[in-house]
């Protein structure tokens, strides 16, 4: 969906930069990128470095950065919604009203990005941007170190020990879905969407999986 954004803003000083948080490496992302054939940079982040640097906890999340390299919107959900939690699991489809609401939320977010690029609307003043910035705790920093260690060990044939460090990273940083999901064994579909994922989603109760952006 980001290509539409790039296409309609082709005449503006603007770019999407899409970063694939792929702990198993570039080949996992390759089929998706080659199919989408994006005109914007699509980068491979096999250590989840961008998530760590910006305090991101899920995908897709985004940050808006102005022409001076200043963050004008801290990490927030990029157009996704929680409607998937109510899907019909036998058919893996959404109720029509949920499907419509999901599309509307995505369209509203893309409209907001376009408005920002054209007029500057939705860029936050510095104090507000600062107030919305994620708080990095000592536990999160330790989790990032353990997660990076685990990714390295998994890539080097030490999956069993990697699993222990993944688990400790998720324990220290329970809000990070990216750590939890990249650590999971993949389903045949390639998704980290097995029972452990749904148990964790259901345990959220009233809390969102994708926190709606406050535009």
């Amino acid at each position: 969906m980001w290509q539409d954004l790039q296409d309609c803003l082709f005449d503006a000083p603007f770019t999407v930069i899409a970063v694939a948080e792929e702990g198993r490496g570039a080949e996992q992302a390759r089929p998706w990128i080659e199919q989408a054939r994006p005109a914007y940079p699509c980068l491979i982040d096999s250590d989840h470095r961008v998530s760590a640097l910006y305090g991101m906890v899920n995908v897709p999340q985004c940050v808006w950065i102005d022409e001076r390299g200043v963050i004008v919107r801290p990490p927030e959900t990029a157009g996704s919604t929680d409607h998937f939690r109510r899907m019909d699991f036998s058919t893996r489809t959404l109720a029509p009203e949920d499907a419509a609401a999901r599309l509307a939320a995505r369209a509203a977010y893309l409209d907001a990005v376009r408005a920002w690029v054209r007029t500057g609307k939705h860029a936050l003043p510095g104090d507000e941007a600062r107030a919305r910035m994620p708080v990095i705790t000592a536990e999160m920093a330790q989790a990032d170190a353990l997660f990076r260690l685990a990714l390295h060990l998994r890539r080097h044939g030490q999956a069993a020990e990697a699993g222990e460090h993944f688990a400790e990273a998720s324990r220290l940083h329970p809000d990070s879905w990216s750590m939890f999901r990249d650590a999971m064994a993949l389903e045949p579909s390639g998704l980290a969407g097995g029972a452990a994922f749904w148990d964790r989603v259901n345990a959220l109760g009233d809390k969102p999986y994708y926190t709606p952006p406050d535009l």
């Binding site: 603007f14 770019t15 089929p31 998706w32 995908v59 897709p60 985004c62 808006w64 990005v113 920002w116």
Partner: peptide, 12 residues
């Protein structure tokens, strides 16, 4: 010099 929409995604 450009506005950047930095976004993450994953195959998983």
């Amino acid at each position: 010099g450009q506005k950047v929409f930095l976004t993450t995604w994953a195959s998983w």
